[in-house]
Design a protein around this nucleic acid. Structure first.
Lengths: 345, 345
DNA sequence: ATGAAAGCGCTAACAA
DNA sequence: TTGTTAGCGCTTTCAT
């Protein structure tokens, strides 16, 4: 049987109220009794029961993180940033992997709510209308990390994916590429990819790029694939089957880029000599891959940390209403490596 | 204000006990009242408060996972397996990243205990004596995933790292390699690497391999490195500076292998033509890397799932004593790809 | 400065 | 079959 506040009170010959006061550092205790209580605590090895405390104060200091799959490098780093920030502020995190399965999303959310989480962080690839409504109805603070909701109901922390897609494409243009295409993940699962392609299209139009329809392909995402490399490979194969070939491809993430590069090389072509590829996310392997992959990077760890901070801010301020005003954009960057050839030289 | 069991009782004109009975599916309720209660629950949108329940029944259905860094591919997959299994059995998981920092380990453990976790899963690279003692003292079930404790106090779920190291080395030998070396991560951080090298040494002795001291290097692990590739690179550089060169290197994990291969190529040598490299873990990129990396694989997801299952079994059986009898060994495998040359052909 | 006591929302004897 | 009630371990008013 664990030792309780009662035991400590008895041992120190004080009331439980006093013990509670010293445990919670409430000043109105004489130095004398404080020491006695501290001694008793030390003595008995007392540790406060957080669930009793939570019940009483109606606060658990726990937040739920709902995400697709912690195994994906993008999410794993964001989660790490979020978790670290949470612990820093005295919050624990309960992790829920949903694999974008609507049923899981709902049931996990329900459990998180029953556990009286103080707030919820969603790092899914997508939040559909149904889930968005459930989230809104939950009555606790919610922030979205890396994803967007079309109605801008929620606080969101992310990079500017449209601009990032635009920047990547612009970089291709600046390097002399005008025949360009893209490979994106299935828009059913990745809202952000969709945004990146909006940026691509914007740049294509602005710079008068020739982005033939057959060079622009959307992957058929296998829901539970470990990574997108296979899909990138297949998509590239499709692109390479067109009569005329683009000089550069914008891959919506680095795994897709890796698959695409493999495919290009399998057909006896070279990257970047024959076809250039630009990736997205700056996954660590991109630096070690051959060729080293030029990509768009952004501080995922920071995105996670900022998410958590915004969520905790909401929790402590006691504001329950949904509000997207405190959304934040985290800056991104192009990291130039070897997979894009400069056609101007 | 959230709706409570009281509200439901009132709405259905029954006692809270009856509501509790229908919520918990306790049969002794007439179909009639059950329906009335169910209707009231539906009506008010009642969700049971798990923290009140936990306080009463002294069980939280929550387990804590203590691990170094969820960001590491090995751990991330193990965690995923563990988390999935937990949810399947109705348990939530609180995640604690420690970066092998002893202070964090202790304070996170304390918090997990205060939160009244029903059990603890440790997937650290190492558990030192001090932490092991704290764990043992916690009084709740503990299982270790992928790591070993020398005194075999804890239940452990893992592959047989010694045998795996032996098998990898034997594979090198079978392919005609007798001049071999290894690169291992710092033994200060990775207990498993140490075990793998024990296997290497065993094989080296058994097959009479020539494993020169200067070909066997232990990385100087930078505590918070994203990955071990840099260390693998540096270690290989050191090996390549020896007068005579080995024909094959056993890398203690795939990231190290990637770094080593990069280094070999940077010196103008080829893998596997000049030097063979065998990795460990079968990280997905190994299949996409050039050359594709021959490696030792094991089902990390399953290790995690089995960990969780063993832990939950302990929890439900109510056995608090430490006991390593239910430890489990998960089989491993050599996956043959292109980074090891067959010298016999 | 300290203590008594009510009560957070729930479960589980025990009674009826 | 249903209700009453005593806690689970803690915080927090309100007295003293």
């Amino acid at each position: 049987m664990a030792v309780t506040i009662q035991d400590v009170a008895k041992a120190a010959s004080v009331s439980v109220a006093t013990v509670s006061r010293v445990v919670n550092n409430i000043p109105l205790v004489s130095e004398d009794t404080r020491q006695r209580v501290l001694a008793a605590i030390e003595d008995l090895g007392y540790e406060p029961n957080e669930v009793a405390r939570s019940l009483k104060v109606r606060k658990t200091n726990t937040i739920g993180i709902i995400l697709d799959d912690i195994t994906r490098p993008q999410y794993t780093t964001v989660s790490r940033g979020a978790t670290d920030a949470c612990w820093m502020y005295g919050y624990n995190v309960i992790l829920a992997n949903t694999d974008s399965d609507e049923e899981k999303e709902e049931s996990y959310l329900k459990v998180l709510l029953q556990k009286q989480c103080d707030g919820i962080l969603v790092i899914n690839r997508k939040v559909n209308d149904n889930f968005a409504e459930k989230l809104a109805l939950s009555g606790i603070p919610v922030v979205l990390g890396t994803i967007s909701d079309k109605e801008k109901k929620f606080t969101r922390v992310s990079i500017d994916n449209v601009k990032a897609g635009y920047d990547a494409t612009k970089y291709l243009y600046e390097n002399g590429h005008t025949d360009v295409g893209y490979i994106m993940a299935s828009r059913d699962y990745y809202t952000v990819c969709e945004e990146r392609i909006i940026g691509f299209n914007k740049a294509a139009e602005e710079f008068g790029l020739n982005a033939k329809e057959e060079w622009c392909v959307e992957c058929v995402t296998t829901k539970f694939a470990d990574n997108d490399a296979v899909e990138g490979y297949d998509a590239m194969e499709q692109i390479l089957s067109s009569k005329q070939l683009p000089t550069a491809i914008f891959a919506a993430n680095d795994e897709i880029a890796i698959g695409a590069i493999k495919c290009i090389e399998a057909k006896g072509l070279k990257v970047p000599a024959d076809i250039s590829v630009i990736g997205f996310n700056d996954y660590w392997i991109s630096e070690w891959f051959k060729p080293q992959i030029t990509t768009v990077s952004y501080p995922m760890y920071d995105v996670g940390a900022v998410c958590a901070r915004q969520l905790i801010k909401k929790i402590s301020s006691g504001i329950k209403e949904l509000n997207a005003d405190d959304s934040m954009i985290i800056p991104h960057d192009i990291v130039i490596r070897q997979s894009v050839k400069n056609l101007n030289e």
